[in-house]
Write a protein that binds this DNA or RNA. Structure first.
Lengths: 348, 348
DNA sequence: CTGTTAGCGCCTTCAG
DNA sequence: CTGAAGGCGCTAACAG
């Protein structure tokens, strides 16, 4: 038809031979419009394959149909599940979500929030761990503050209270504590921790939980019992390789995430050790595939999709008045077969 | 500071005591601006925490910094990996991606494209299987056509040529053929297929590949050898349960996706069968965790992230002239331990 | 009910 | 180099 870059409402109005306003009303159903006119407008719109320009709509102050979700890495099952939950409720509200992946880069995360702010997203959900970094934290708060002042809502999962946003808080520390205690109860006395980057609050909290519980049971976790890797499968693999190289005598390896546990199990196996016969391994999160591993992974189960759903709900629910509702989500220790009583004879 | 809902360029200009135009130029670096003025503008912007309104920018015809990716379900490792690749290249180009999840609902998929169109996304990548459905297909084409006419670019992964978009085409059929042949070569003669919804082109293509290869080897796959479930882990589980209930005598179960294979292995195990000693199981895709399963999954490996990357690259590269470049991506049979030579004695 | 008109916030010719 | 003015597409008051 036309060569115009885009079909606009004006084109539709002209084709239907009505005024701009009438066309707008007919399409949005804002006000009643005489039937025949509406017919004409609608068919003109269909014929021209008209789609309203969301930018113009937003500018004109009508819609705010987009929300943002920012996460570190969508290909991590943890974030995938969270995001799915968040998307589901956004969808239910007829909102489109802009997903921003930061690849765990603090600067990029700031940039994402800025972009979302520019898009005038009506809500932003920050998932995943924050960075234990004062200046970053300040910068993020500085970005969020004006966003909120402009009417934006924000909710976070596992973040510092300092952001003063509604937060969904899985009990990382408590879950870790429970897991360490459960392993102790199973009979383990020599532990090692396979952990991720210490500057991630999630990591820090979980390790703290392990340490706390064990200390309470008379077992000190020293720096030499901690093996750090990236917060993914390969990180788990490498950290465990280091553990093996150090000839650590642990009978139980506590990891801070299921994905790391997967790597850990792989490394242990390659070294000829059996899980759980020689070493027990625990995870954290209960990602979907945890139960399908062999052996099925003992882990601290978190209702991942629900975390995402709740966060989005908080973000969308303008209620709550003063900033800072907190919804705690407990984790549950799931004993599966990657853990067992320690054997008598020491390994290696 | 102000109570205005949003800080605008005008606020910045006023604070800096310059004109709107100068403020704009100083911030965008479009034209040279006297140093002191620029300083003033920039510091005013910083002080007021100014963020340009992306909608206004887009409306004014300047930027088009968003691209869309639509997929069925982000929590499926296949889509997660694809999306990750796509996001990576978008990121590299300084673009924000809007991820739309359709939960495998054709209507929702149409709605997503419409929303992306409204956002004037500069490019749209459709990942994941199309639906084998004439009227849906027409509707999608009708939505895409005007989008393109308006300058929008679109690329698809595994879709019908009928959409006439640039496409990245993993060789589902060829890969399936190769897998079936490999299993035949291993010695298998009795096959069953655990498959997903037949209306997904991906599923259809893969099954066709199995059938084709087997037919060439003198083995007919009848309807009774096909067990259908949803396109995920649980679907694989259920389809396999049905297979077991039917007392199918297959020595090798070909599945159309790794996630389904995971379910299949679980079901087989629960029935007391050993994989691969009693039954061999194959997957398709090579999702990240495939190698970490026990036994590691024999599968048709597809470079998932690259699929996403290439699709986004095609979408972003206005070149290519006439619509319809096709980039074929071969799959590679990866023999791991979920498959083995069939045993002599028949099972069950 | 319907049409006219004034912005929404920004960019970009145009003059100066 | 800087300022004033028009317009991007749409909606929401206003008048008719």
């Amino acid at each position: 038809m036309s060569d115009r870059p885009h079909v606009t409402l004006e084109d539709v109005a002209r084709t239907a031979e009505v005024s701009l306003a009438t066309a707008s009303r007919a399409i949005n159903g804002t006000t009643r419009v005489r039937d025949d006119l509406r017919e004409r407008v609608l068919s003109a719109a269909a014929e021209l394959a008209y789609t309203p320009n969301a930018h113009a709509q937003a500018l004109a102050g009508a819609s705010r149909r987009t929300v943002g979700v920012v996460c570190h890495d969508i290909s991590d099952p943890y974030f995938a599940a969270l995001t799915r939950g968040a998307m589901r409720v956004a969808d239910r509200h007829g909102l489109v979500v802009m997903l921003a992946g930061t690849f765990a880069d603090p600067d990029k995360e700031l940039a994402c929030v800025s972009a979302l702010r520019a898009q005038r997203a009506s809500a932003i959900v920050l998932t995943g761990s924050a960075f234990e970094n004062r200046s970053w934290e300040r910068a993020m708060a500085a970005e969020l503050e004006p966003y909120r002042r402009g009417g934006g809502r924000v909710a976070v999962v596992t973040r510092h209270r300092s952001l003063r946003a509604d937060t969904v808080s899985p009990e990382n520390r408590g879950g870790a504590r429970a897991m360490a205690e459960a392993m102790h109860r199973l009979g383990h006395r020599r532990f090692a921790v396979v952990t991720g980057p210490a500057h991630l609050t999630t990591v820090a909290d979980r390790v703290a939980g392990f340490r706390e519980a064990l200390a309470g049971l008379g077992i000190e976790l020293s720096e030499r019992d901690l093996f750090e890797g990236s917060f993914d499968r390969d990180g788990g693999r490498e950290a465990t390789a280091a553990l093996l190289a150090a000839k650590h005598k642990a009978t139980c390896v506590l990891t801070v995430a299921d994905v790391m546990a997967v790597g850990a199990i792989g490394a242990l196996r390659e070294a000829g050790l059996s899980v759980p016969d020689d070493v027990s391994v625990t995870g954290f999160d209960d990602i979907p595939l945890a139960r399908d591993l062999t052996p099925p992974l003992t882990t601290v189960a978190l209702p991942l999709e629900r975390l995402g759903e709740e966060a989005m709900e908080l973000a969308l629910d303008a209620g709550g008045g003063s900033r800072g509702r907190v919804r705690r989500i407990p984790g549950e220790v799931l004993l599966r077969s990657s853990t067992a009583k320690p054997r008598r004879r020491r390994r290696s």
